[in-house]
Nucleic acid binder design. Sequence first.
DNA 1: CTGAAAGCGCTTACAG
DNA 2: CTGAAAGCGCTTACAG
Lengths: 336, 336
Amino acid sequence: MSATTISFVLNGGAQGKKVSEPVKQKILDYVQSIGYKPNLVARSLRTGKSRIIGMLVEDISDPFFSSIGRIIEDNLYEHGYKIFHSSTDNNPARSKDLLRIFRERQVDGYIIAPSPGIESEIQHILNDARPVILFDRFFPGLDTTNVIINNAGGTYDGTMHLIMNGFVSIAFITIDSEQVQMMDRLKGYKLAMTENELPSLIQKIKYVEYKTAPGKIAVRIKEFLTSNDSVDAILFATNYLAICGLQAIRELGLRIPYDIGVVGFDDNTHFSLFTPTITAVAQPVEEMSKKVIEQLMLCMTDENTRTMNETIVLPTKLMIRESSLSTVALTMKKQI
Amino acid sequence: MSATTISFVLNGGAQGKKVSEPVKQKILDYVQSIGYKPNLVARSLRTGKSRIIGMLVEDISDPFFSSIGRIIEDNLYEHGYKIFHSSTDNNPARSKDLLRIFRERQVDGYIIAPSPGIESEIQHILNDARPVILFDRFFPGLDTTNVIINNAGGTYDGTMHLIMNGFVSIAFITIDSEQVQMMDRLKGYKLAMTENELPSLIQKIKYVEYKTAPGKIAVRIKEFLTSNDSVDAILFATNYLAICGLQAIRELGLRIPYDIGVVGFDDNTHFSLFTPTITAVAQPVEEMSKKVIEQLMLCMTDENTRTMNETIVLPTKLMIRESSLSTVALTMKKQI
DNA sequence: CTGAAAGCGCTTACAG
DNA sequence: CTGAAAGCGCTTACAG
């Protein structure tokens, strides 16, 4: 029996080639009996397809990225793909290295939440007409398909919500990142403040510091609050900042929302269990993952879509809880 | 110039083969100029080594597994390995499928937090003398290298701590899993209760239910607490159960630790921000990851260690916070 | 020190 | 309907 026939049987036969039933059955039985497992490495070398997708995120241990990672993994699995998951720590050198490794391993497509400074590497991928989807952030100068959330809308909503609840000295605590998602979050906050003729008060934590223990960042936030004691509410630009900020607020003995109102960006399962519960701008994790897969699969099948510049913007949802409500603050006041 | 010479230059030359400096330099320059990138798929096919490790966990979006995943990814990267990360949902069929895929892709080694029912698949890997490390749980009948924590010790400590703080009707809320890590947690609890002549009270949540939304599990826990109103403390067997349990306790309007003491198993960053702060048995995530890598690398280099039965047991650490302290309960009592 | 050649395990045009 | 043969891009014994 020839390799050709066997290959046709196992792979369902190429272009109308048929194998007779008896032969087919015999091969199937034999394959079963010896427990044959195809060598996918050899197949990849021959076909040029690896059926592996390379995925780059900032940090796979971040709940946002690990939830998305999980959903994408499940979806790709359905499509017969496996995934290489790597964390860049937002470091350009590491990102480049990982992208090189992905390429050397012949991944079929890329899903990337890009670090700064890797525009030209992404451009290389586009030049090779390989499928690539950026998500969470993107480079406005590149013709990629991007799946993001409405960051400015999210912070705008959060800020407006605080304003409507009577807070007037609202600080925005963020990181010193020039990346588009962070810039947009800043924009939304500023817009709401300006529209209401309130002065903006922005505190940026250095990214190197941001990558350290929560305690250290809490120290920075405490310093900020101590030297700006008129602040009556804070909008945190990331989930991690909110956690560190809550620690700072606790250590300073401030009462939420009576002494200080709080809104976080990026919701998490625990915010509804804090006392008081914490208001947050939720990101549509599920929809985002689905859109990423949908767009990637489109690029995989239709070569023309690969360098088509498109940015899909998904809405955020403000999860209103106690930490930002004037009524809750009022009740607390009465109790004191 | 022959492929042999080029290969020697790029891979540092095999077994004492030397390439003259001028030739070497010329090749290096040329390779640089055309931007040559090796095809690692071809190399894998030829050498039989993929430099890929397959990792199977229950759920990569679980903070415990994603933290370990991150550390292991970083460590393997240092060693020149990449990782396939997959979630099994503790489902045997899915686990088997993923293991088959790993094999077809010729992974060099396996890191597995096994689901039930895959003993024979793991045995196959051992028979092939492939490096495999089990962690978090293991199969007592197999000659694998296992890295686990002292589960029984952890729950014993947690239970003893509650008893020493005056709690007498301590319930253990767990899942209906027969896996070794869960059985050991149960054992530690029972031992502490028996030693102190206290009656055990165990509530098992069905695994299918466990995989649903926190709200549904909270309902189960509320039912349990309502029909067992003498319970004065709970030890939760997993992090997720603790979160759901805290929701249940909140919804019932019970005050921690005055009405009910709480200890969780598996610490998380947020427990120190809850009101009151939550006591938990912390797992040594960093050490565990390092041990896994260390043992895997040992198996990779030394074939003899691959089927050596060894179980490395790491200690847990009780993080004592407010939710379990009699002094805190006392203070609350005075305030009421 | 350098090169010609075989072979890893597949797939697939081509011939019969 | 079936088979012989080439080739994917490497590595590595072997010969010179």
